[in-house]
């Protein structure tokens, strides 16, 4: 087991130094799923964005022990519509053989696909790059229960096949993963 990320005394701030999250300390080890749990507005997503360099104001420090190119990030999806008429196949790149894609019509346009279909595509595209760290922000939003379980199975299988990888996951929904690889960090 190796340490992929160390976070010490990290607190997300606004430009005016107002706190957006509590101070957090954690490590992310290979083979692990770190589950960030907390109420709306507790700063979970802001912590992820700060780690990824998408939010510039913070105190404390953190260090990735993998290259940024080995990290994949799926943000909260919302109801994003895209100006260009991408099909699901256009979004996939080289990931066209993922088991998550079973039964999907890849000629369907992104803008008309359901939340579950969109997430399956984004998951497949991200996993096909074999990331060492996969960072997921509310991946089960806009996804029905069955598709959610399907996605969870896909993630579990990925970690099983790639034990040197790890995930950080923010979700309102409790995960049904086995206790050995799942670690929960309460953000409040």
């Amino acid at each position: 087991m190796s340490v992929l990320l160390e976070v010490k005394g990290l607190q997300v701030l606004t430009k005016n130094k107002t706190n957006l999250s509590p101070v957090v300390n954690f490590e992310l080890n290979s083979g692990e799923v770190l589950f960030l749990k907390g109420e709306n507005g507790s700063g979970k997503s802001s912590i992820l964005k700060t780690l990824l360099g998408l939010h510039p104001y913070f105190s404390g420090r953190f260090q990735f022990h993998v290259d940024i190119s080995d990290i994949e990030y799926l943000p909260q999806l919302g109801n994003l519509n895209f100006h260009l008429p991408l099909t699901l196949a256009d979004m996939l790149g080289e990931a066209q053989s993922s088991p998550l894609l079973k039964g999907l019509d890849l000629n369907k346009k992104w803008n008309t696909a359901s939340g579950g279909e969109r997430q399956k595509i984004l998951f497949s595209a991200a996993l096909a790059k074999h990331p060492r760290i996969l960072i997921l922000d509310e991946p089960f939003n806009h996804v029905d229960t069955e598709a959610g379980h399907h996605l969870e199975d896909g993630l579990r299988q990925y970690l099983k096949d790639h034990p040197q990888s790890a995930m950080i996951l923010v979700s309102h929904r409790n995960l049904s993963g086995d206790g050995a690889s799942l670690r929960t960090l309460e953000i409040r």
Partner: peptide
């Protein structure tokens, strides 16, 4: 073109980290 389009998607989806 495809690569730039996917970058555009990531930019608008606020997930452009690479």
């Amino acid at each position: 073109w495809k690569q730039l389009t996917l970058i555009s998607f990531q930019l608008v989806n606020q997930s452009f980290i690479h």
